[in-house]
Design a protein around this nucleic acid. Structure first.
Lengths: 80, 80
DNA sequence: GTCTTTTATACCTTTATGGGTATAATCGAT
DNA sequence: ATCGATTATACCCATAAAGGTATAAAAGAC
């Protein structure tokens, strides 16, 4: 059904930060201005997301998307 | 006309890496499998891009998009 | 300077994201 | 165990991204 990957850097980051802040998905969507559906998709690891929407959420936690070297972990999971 | 920002982390990263590799935009699009138009938009700093397409290009350079703390530089340009 | 290559901008079409809503499923507190 | 809140999945629609093509501008070689 859904072959999304919840265990990617961005999904895990948002989920953990949100929980640390004791917020619900709804509250996060409300505070960041993105749709609730987007927060869900983001945390569930939907592959195709718009960078500015992701950044809209990350900004709330003082972060943003930037290019970083592949971790050995990631490289392994990609078979590179 | 275009109020895009060429001077963002991702655009600059791709542009510099591509030039270091002495590749044309066409070659990069060809090797990464994304459209030539996308490489252009990416390097020109189009605000809304799909994360998987960006990653498709970054992967070629051994990188990927991940959440990183806002730099003072970025924070200043955002007025945060 | 000219000519060629590369890059930038503009228009059009197809496709899929984001958003909304509704419904299940899961988790928590009691 | 029940009941409420939170999270997950499924549907539809409007909008915009990605791609293609064509043209203009810029950069390089000569």
């Amino acid at each position: 059904m859904k072959n999304w990957n919840r265990n990617n850097a961005t999904s895990e980051f948002v989920r953990s930060r949100r929980k640390e802040s004791k917020m619900t998905q709804f509250e996060l969507s409300d505070l960041t201005g993105v749709g609730l559906r987007f927060v869900r998709d983001l945390e569930q690891g939907k592959p195709n997301l718009m960078t500015d929407k992701v950044n809209q959420v990350l900004l709330f936690f003082g972060h943003q998307l930037t290019p970083t070297p592949l971790s050995d972990e990631t490289r392994r999971s990609l078979g590179k």
